[in-house]
Protein backbone atom coordinates (compact mmCIF):
# COMPACT_ATOMS: atom_id res chain seq x y z
CA UNK A 1 0.00 0.00 0.00
CA UNK A 2 2.87 2.33 0.79
CA UNK A 3 3.66 2.28 -2.92
CA UNK A 4 0.38 4.01 -3.66
CA UNK A 5 1.07 6.89 -1.30
CA UNK A 6 4.55 7.55 -2.63
CA UNK A 7 5.16 10.98 -4.09
CA UNK A 8 7.12 9.28 -6.84
CA UNK A 9 3.97 7.71 -8.23
CA UNK A 10 2.05 10.96 -8.02
CA UNK A 11 4.83 12.79 -9.85
CA UNK A 12 4.93 10.13 -12.56
CA UNK A 13 1.17 10.35 -13.02
CA UNK A 14 1.22 14.16 -13.20
CA UNK A 15 4.07 14.23 -15.72
CA UNK A 16 2.30 11.73 -17.93
CA UNK A 17 -1.03 13.55 -17.56
CA UNK A 18 0.46 16.89 -18.56
CA UNK A 19 1.89 15.41 -21.75
CA UNK A 20 -1.36 13.65 -22.58
CA UNK A 21 -3.33 16.83 -21.93
CA UNK A 22 -1.11 18.84 -24.25
CA UNK A 23 -1.46 16.34 -27.09
CA UNK A 24 -5.21 16.02 -26.56
CA UNK A 25 -5.81 19.77 -26.36
CA UNK A 26 -4.70 20.38 -29.94
CA UNK A 27 -6.71 17.48 -31.25
CA UNK A 28 -9.80 18.62 -29.38
CA UNK A 29 -9.53 22.16 -30.75
CA UNK A 30 -9.48 21.03 -34.36
CA UNK A 31 -12.27 18.52 -33.81
CA UNK A 32 -14.37 20.87 -31.72
CA UNK A 33 -14.36 23.80 -34.12
CA UNK A 34 -14.40 22.04 -37.46
CA UNK A 35 -15.45 18.44 -36.78
CA UNK A 36 -12.25 17.28 -38.47
CA UNK A 37 -10.97 13.89 -37.32
CA UNK A 38 -7.27 14.53 -37.32
CA UNK A 39 -5.69 11.10 -37.11
CA UNK A 40 -2.43 12.66 -38.27
CA UNK A 41 -2.21 14.57 -34.99
CA UNK A 42 0.46 12.24 -33.60
CA UNK A 43 2.54 12.80 -36.74
CA UNK A 44 2.85 16.47 -35.81
CA UNK A 45 4.13 15.37 -32.41
CA UNK A 46 6.67 13.23 -34.27
CA UNK A 47 7.68 16.14 -36.54
CA UNK A 48 8.18 18.38 -33.51
CA UNK A 49 10.45 15.72 -32.08
CA UNK A 50 12.54 15.52 -35.26
CA UNK A 51 12.87 19.29 -35.53
CA UNK A 52 14.24 19.32 -31.99
CA UNK A 53 16.50 16.32 -32.48
CA UNK A 54 17.91 17.62 -35.72
CA UNK A 55 18.49 21.19 -34.62
CA UNK A 56 20.09 20.02 -31.38
CA UNK A 57 22.44 17.44 -32.86
CA UNK A 58 23.30 19.29 -36.09
CA UNK A 59 23.03 22.97 -35.25
CA UNK A 60 23.51 22.87 -31.51
CA UNK A 61 20.21 24.63 -30.90
CA UNK A 62 18.96 23.96 -27.38
CA UNK A 63 15.69 22.03 -27.10
CA UNK A 64 14.47 24.90 -24.93
CA UNK A 65 14.75 27.16 -27.97
CA UNK A 66 13.07 24.53 -30.11
CA UNK A 67 10.04 25.00 -27.90
CA UNK A 68 9.55 28.20 -29.91
CA UNK A 69 10.83 27.02 -33.29
CA UNK A 70 8.96 23.74 -33.58
CA UNK A 71 5.53 25.14 -32.66
CA UNK A 72 6.07 28.01 -35.13
CA UNK A 73 6.84 25.51 -37.89
CA UNK A 74 3.92 23.35 -36.77
CA UNK A 75 1.62 26.37 -36.97
CA UNK A 76 2.79 27.22 -40.49
CA UNK A 77 2.36 23.64 -41.62
CA UNK A 78 -1.09 23.54 -40.03
CA UNK A 79 -2.16 26.69 -41.85
CA UNK A 80 -0.81 25.34 -45.11
CA UNK A 81 -2.72 22.09 -44.69
CA UNK A 82 -5.87 24.02 -43.91
CA UNK A 83 -5.57 26.29 -46.93
CA UNK A 84 -4.66 23.54 -49.36
CA UNK A 85 -6.74 20.61 -48.18
CA UNK A 86 -9.62 21.79 -46.04
CA UNK A 87 -10.73 25.27 -46.90
CA UNK A 88 -12.75 24.21 -49.93
CA UNK A 89 -14.10 21.21 -48.07
CA UNK A 90 -15.50 23.32 -45.27
CA UNK A 91 -16.93 26.02 -47.52
CA UNK A 92 -19.12 23.89 -49.70
CA UNK A 93 -22.24 22.93 -47.70
CA UNK A 94 -22.48 19.70 -49.68
CA UNK A 95 -18.98 18.59 -48.74
CA UNK A 96 -19.29 19.97 -45.23
CA UNK A 97 -22.04 17.46 -44.51
CA UNK A 98 -19.56 14.65 -45.01
CA UNK A 99 -16.65 16.45 -43.44
CA UNK A 100 -15.92 13.96 -40.65
CA UNK A 101 -15.55 10.99 -42.96
CA UNK A 102 -13.65 12.98 -45.58
CA UNK A 103 -11.29 14.52 -43.07
CA UNK A 104 -10.53 11.07 -41.69
CA UNK A 105 -9.42 9.93 -45.13
CA UNK A 106 -7.43 13.07 -45.87
CA UNK A 107 -5.64 13.00 -42.53
CA UNK A 108 -4.94 9.31 -42.96
CA UNK A 109 -3.17 10.18 -46.19
CA UNK A 110 -1.29 13.02 -44.53
CA UNK A 111 -0.23 10.66 -41.76
CA UNK A 112 1.12 8.03 -44.14
CA UNK A 113 2.95 10.66 -46.19
CA UNK A 114 4.61 12.24 -43.15
CA UNK A 115 5.69 8.92 -41.70
CA UNK A 116 7.24 7.76 -44.93
CA UNK A 117 8.88 11.05 -45.85
CA UNK A 118 10.53 11.09 -42.43
CA UNK A 119 11.57 7.44 -42.83
CA UNK A 120 13.14 8.35 -46.19
CA UNK A 121 14.93 11.40 -44.84
CA UNK A 122 16.09 10.06 -41.50
CA UNK A 123 15.73 6.25 -41.89
CA UNK A 124 13.74 4.42 -39.25
CA UNK A 125 16.62 4.27 -36.79
CA UNK A 126 15.69 5.35 -33.28
CA UNK A 127 16.95 8.83 -32.54
CA UNK A 128 17.61 10.35 -29.21
CA UNK A 129 19.82 12.87 -27.52
CA UNK A 130 20.81 13.60 -23.98
CA UNK A 131 19.79 16.94 -22.57
CA UNK A 132 19.39 17.95 -18.92
CA UNK A 133 19.11 14.40 -17.73
CA UNK A 134 20.60 14.77 -14.25
CA UNK A 135 18.34 13.38 -11.56
CA UNK A 136 16.85 15.99 -9.26
CA UNK A 137 15.60 15.01 -5.82
CA UNK A 138 12.72 16.96 -4.37
CA UNK A 139 11.80 15.51 -1.02
CA UNK A 140 11.61 11.80 -1.66
CA UNK A 141 10.72 12.24 -5.32
CA UNK A 142 13.47 11.68 -7.86
CA UNK A 143 13.02 12.90 -11.40
CA UNK A 144 15.30 13.83 -14.26
CA UNK A 145 15.43 17.54 -15.02
CA UNK A 146 14.01 17.04 -18.51
CA UNK A 147 10.92 15.30 -17.15
CA UNK A 148 10.41 18.17 -14.73
CA UNK A 149 10.66 20.59 -17.65
CA UNK A 150 8.18 18.47 -19.57
CA UNK A 151 5.74 18.69 -16.70
CA UNK A 152 6.24 22.43 -16.21
CA UNK A 153 5.98 23.38 -19.87
CA UNK A 154 3.13 21.04 -20.77
CA UNK A 155 0.95 22.00 -17.84
CA UNK A 156 1.56 25.74 -18.27
CA UNK A 157 0.84 25.49 -22.00
CA UNK A 158 -2.48 23.77 -21.24
CA UNK A 159 -3.44 26.32 -18.60
CA UNK A 160 -2.47 29.21 -20.88
CA UNK A 161 -4.67 27.76 -23.58
CA UNK A 162 -7.60 27.45 -21.23
CA UNK A 163 -7.07 31.05 -20.09
CA UNK A 164 -6.89 32.17 -23.71
CA UNK A 165 -10.23 30.59 -24.52
CA UNK A 166 -11.81 31.89 -21.36
CA UNK A 167 -10.60 35.47 -21.27
CA UNK A 168 -9.84 36.68 -24.78
CA UNK A 169 -12.18 37.77 -27.54
CA UNK A 170 -10.69 35.39 -30.09
CA UNK A 171 -10.91 32.60 -27.55
CA UNK A 172 -14.55 33.32 -26.89
CA UNK A 173 -15.17 33.27 -30.63
CA UNK A 174 -13.61 29.80 -30.84
CA UNK A 175 -15.80 28.58 -28.01
CA UNK A 176 -18.81 30.09 -29.74
CA UNK A 177 -18.00 28.19 -32.91
CA UNK A 178 -17.56 24.98 -30.94
CA UNK A 179 -20.96 25.46 -29.34
CA UNK A 180 -23.02 26.83 -32.24
CA UNK A 181 -21.25 26.89 -35.56
CA UNK A 182 -24.05 28.33 -37.73
CA UNK A 183 -25.22 30.83 -35.15
CA UNK A 184 -21.71 32.19 -34.64
CA UNK A 185 -21.43 32.84 -38.37
CA UNK A 186 -24.69 34.74 -38.17
CA UNK A 187 -23.41 37.03 -35.42
CA UNK A 188 -20.45 37.98 -37.56
CA UNK A 189 -17.61 35.71 -36.53
CA UNK A 190 -15.23 35.22 -39.46
CA UNK A 191 -15.20 31.44 -39.42
CA UNK A 192 -12.58 31.06 -42.11
CA UNK A 193 -10.07 33.17 -40.22
CA UNK A 194 -10.91 31.41 -37.03
CA UNK A 195 -10.36 28.04 -38.66
CA UNK A 196 -6.89 29.09 -39.76
CA UNK A 197 -6.09 30.23 -36.25
CA UNK A 198 -7.32 26.99 -34.72
CA UNK A 199 -5.34 24.90 -37.19
CA UNK A 200 -2.22 26.90 -36.39
CA UNK A 201 -2.75 26.60 -32.66
CA UNK A 202 -3.70 22.92 -32.73
CA UNK A 203 -0.63 21.91 -34.69
CA UNK A 204 1.64 24.21 -32.72
CA UNK A 205 0.54 22.45 -29.53
CA UNK A 206 1.23 19.06 -31.11
CA UNK A 207 4.70 20.20 -32.20
CA UNK A 208 5.39 21.54 -28.71
CA UNK A 209 4.42 18.15 -27.30
CA UNK A 210 6.88 16.63 -29.78
CA UNK A 211 9.70 18.81 -28.47
CA UNK A 212 8.97 17.61 -24.94
CA UNK A 213 8.62 13.98 -25.99
CA UNK A 214 11.99 14.03 -27.73
CA UNK A 215 13.62 15.25 -24.52
CA UNK A 216 12.53 12.19 -22.54
CA UNK A 217 12.10 9.37 -25.02
CA UNK A 218 13.47 8.17 -28.34
CA UNK A 219 11.85 9.10 -31.58
CA UNK A 220 11.23 7.21 -34.81
CA UNK A 221 8.99 8.19 -37.73
CA UNK A 222 6.35 5.90 -36.24
CA UNK A 223 5.93 7.18 -32.68
CA UNK A 224 2.95 9.35 -33.56
CA UNK A 225 0.14 6.84 -33.81
CA UNK A 226 0.00 5.75 -30.14
CA UNK A 227 -0.24 9.44 -29.20
CA UNK A 228 -3.14 9.90 -31.61
CA UNK A 229 -4.95 6.96 -30.04
CA UNK A 230 -4.36 8.17 -26.48
CA UNK A 231 -5.51 11.64 -27.45
CA UNK A 232 -8.72 10.30 -29.00
CA UNK A 233 -9.43 8.29 -25.86
CA UNK A 234 -8.86 11.40 -23.76
CA UNK A 235 -11.06 13.76 -25.73
CA UNK A 236 -13.82 11.18 -25.89
CA UNK A 237 -13.54 10.66 -22.14
CA UNK A 238 -13.54 14.35 -21.38
CA UNK A 239 -16.20 15.30 -23.89
CA UNK A 240 -15.59 16.11 -27.55
CA UNK A 241 -14.92 19.78 -27.99
CA UNK A 242 -14.75 20.43 -24.26
CA UNK A 243 -11.28 21.83 -23.60
CA UNK A 244 -11.38 21.55 -19.83
CA UNK A 245 -12.71 18.04 -20.27
CA UNK A 246 -9.56 17.02 -22.10
CA UNK A 247 -7.51 18.04 -19.06
CA UNK A 248 -9.71 15.86 -16.91
CA UNK A 249 -9.55 13.00 -19.41
CA UNK A 250 -5.74 13.21 -19.48
CA UNK A 251 -5.54 13.08 -15.68
CA UNK A 252 -7.87 10.11 -15.62
CA UNK A 253 -5.94 8.21 -18.29
CA UNK A 254 -2.57 8.86 -16.64
CA UNK A 255 -3.93 7.91 -13.22
CA UNK A 256 -5.35 4.67 -14.57
CA UNK A 257 -2.03 3.87 -16.23
CA UNK A 258 0.19 4.66 -13.27
CA UNK A 259 -1.99 3.76 -10.27
CA UNK A 260 -3.91 1.01 -12.01
CA UNK A 261 -0.68 -0.83 -12.70
CA UNK A 262 0.48 -0.24 -9.14
CA UNK A 263 -2.71 -1.70 -7.66
CA UNK A 264 -3.28 -4.59 -10.04
CA UNK A 265 -0.49 -5.31 -12.50
CA UNK A 266 1.05 -3.65 -15.52
CA UNK A 267 -0.17 -6.56 -17.59
CA UNK A 268 -3.69 -5.20 -17.23
CA UNK A 269 -2.85 -1.77 -18.53
CA UNK A 270 -4.85 -1.98 -21.74
CA UNK A 271 -7.78 -3.70 -20.05
CA UNK A 272 -7.88 -0.97 -17.40
CA UNK A 273 -7.55 1.92 -19.85
CA UNK A 274 -10.19 0.69 -22.24
CA UNK A 275 -12.33 -0.62 -19.40
CA UNK A 276 -12.59 2.88 -17.95
CA UNK A 277 -13.11 4.24 -21.44
CA UNK A 278 -16.02 1.92 -22.17
CA UNK A 279 -17.49 2.40 -18.70
CA UNK A 280 -17.58 6.18 -19.14
CA UNK A 281 -19.13 5.84 -22.58
CA UNK A 282 -21.81 3.52 -21.24
CA UNK A 283 -22.73 5.75 -18.34
CA UNK A 284 -22.23 9.10 -20.00
CA UNK A 285 -21.93 8.70 -23.79
CA UNK A 286 -21.19 12.40 -24.30
CA UNK A 287 -18.08 12.18 -22.13
CA UNK A 288 -17.47 13.37 -18.56
CA UNK A 289 -17.99 17.04 -19.32
CA UNK A 290 -19.65 16.81 -22.72
CA UNK A 291 -23.07 18.32 -23.33
CA UNK A 292 -25.79 15.97 -24.36
CA UNK A 293 -26.63 16.78 -27.97
CA UNK A 294 -30.29 17.38 -28.62
CA UNK A 295 -31.45 15.68 -31.77
CA UNK A 296 -32.54 18.22 -34.32
Amino acid sequence: MSVLLSGQLLAAALALASLYALVAMGLNLVYGTMRLLNIAHGEFVMLGGYVTYWSFTHLGISPLLSMLIAPALGACLGMLIYLVLFRRLLRSPKLAARVEANSLLIFFGVSVIFQNVMALLFTSTQRGYVYLDQVINIGNVAMTANRLILFGVASSACLLCLAFFRYTRAGSAVRAVIQQRDASALVGIDIDRLNIMVFALGFALAALAGVLVSMVQEITPFIGFPFTISAFVIITLGGLGNLFGSLLGALLLAAVEVYGTAIISSSFRSILVYGVFIAVLLVKPEGLLGRAVVAR
Binding site: A12, L16, V258, T261, S270
Partner: peptide
Protein backbone atom coordinates in the same frame (compact mmCIF):
# COMPACT_ATOMS: atom_id res chain seq x y z
CA UNK B 1 2.55 0.40 -25.08
CA UNK B 2 3.42 1.10 -21.46
CA UNK B 3 4.53 4.71 -21.01
CA UNK B 4 5.53 4.65 -17.34
CA UNK B 5 7.08 1.96 -15.13
CA UNK B 6 7.33 3.85 -11.86
CA UNK B 7 4.90 1.54 -10.04
CA UNK B 8 6.80 -1.67 -10.84
Amino acid sequence: DTKDMTAT
